[in-house]
Design a protein around this nucleic acid. Sequence first.
DNA 1: GAGGACATGTAATGTGTTACATGATTAA
DNA 2: TTAATCATGTAACACATTACATGTCCTC
Lengths: 181, 181
Amino acid sequence: MKMNRGGTTPNALLGLLSLGSMSGYDIRQLIPRSIGHFWSESYGQIYPGLKRLAAAGLVEKKTQRQKGKPDRHVYSLTPEGRAHLQEWLKLPVAEKVPRSELLLKVFFGAHVLPGVSREHVSAVLERHEAALKMNEASDPQLPYWLMTLNFGRHRSAAIVKWCRETLTELERLERTQQGGK
Amino acid sequence: MKMNRGGTTPNALLGLLSLGSMSGYDIRQLIPRSIGHFWSESYGQIYPGLKRLAAAGLVEKKTQRQKGKPDRHVYSLTPEGRAHLQEWLKLPVAEKVPRSELLLKVFFGAHVLPGVSREHVSAVLERHEAALKMNEASDPQLPYWLMTLNFGRHRSAAIVKWCRETLTELERLERTQQGGK
DNA sequence: GAGGACATGTAATGTGTTACATGATTAA
DNA sequence: TTAATCATGTAACACATTACATGTCCTC
């Protein structure tokens, strides 16, 4: 009960179950290949979350016996669950400030040698250049899937651009020794 | 005590205090004009956080009496606090997947009319177009400050671009009624 | 025989926001 | 007189990760 407002996590679970019936374990495995670039959930959220959704009648649980392995608990969306998901999708988006440890460290970079910040930025640059290459490889056809994939591309491209500019500036600071400590 | 590793929030507090001695209230006021685009803290984090930092000897507290108003508790970095901040700045950055409710809703957009997703994307587009205009106005000179400001620009520009592309696609879906429910 | 995949779940702990509580001063 | 600003802080709650606990099968 008390499944009315807020709570993005339960709705994310409903969304994933809308792609097909799954166990908690399956959900965890699916995340990196679907919403992984902009959402993540741990087992500690998934298992208790599914339990609560079942108690609220938004999902249905079926147990499959298996030899040698623990039982599989497969969850499916109920009509009420699907309706709940739709209602949530209609609610205005509440985006919160994304927290970035990288930017915090760059912002306070004057307290360390510019080379320190340079290392941080370089690491992020590499990661996002790799992400862009990965992105070229995969190609799902579903339009909504494509839109979010495309977001990842734009995001990585912007980060790569910023990293390059910032590295240039940090190298300049290193040469002129204006970087502080 | 136990102020060694992890804990981004206490280090963010140390960083802000490195800009000058301040009260918890001042810190809260300063955030939107400094790290607000990539970090936020609430009073519920700030006040107990400062207390713990003081107990660990990383900051020093001085009380200023005021007439009519409550006492001001002004905190300053100690040499240990400054050293701690520097050590943290040197640690490799641990960026976590940024969570975006917007992208979640777009990803599962097939369950509602395309117009619903269009509204969500439009709202974000407006916000970031405004952010870009804001950005043109302000201009601090400090290099590290500038780098993070520049990140905000690139970020907003990328989001605006993605929003435009996505809106075009959503409008196409609306016309051809391929959007699902 | 070591390690990983399969599969579930809880407990401890960490992290963060919101609401509450207090109370004077000042401007609309 | 109503609300905002100044200023502090706690308590309750919400949200999330990690470590723990269990046990088999399969591959190297």
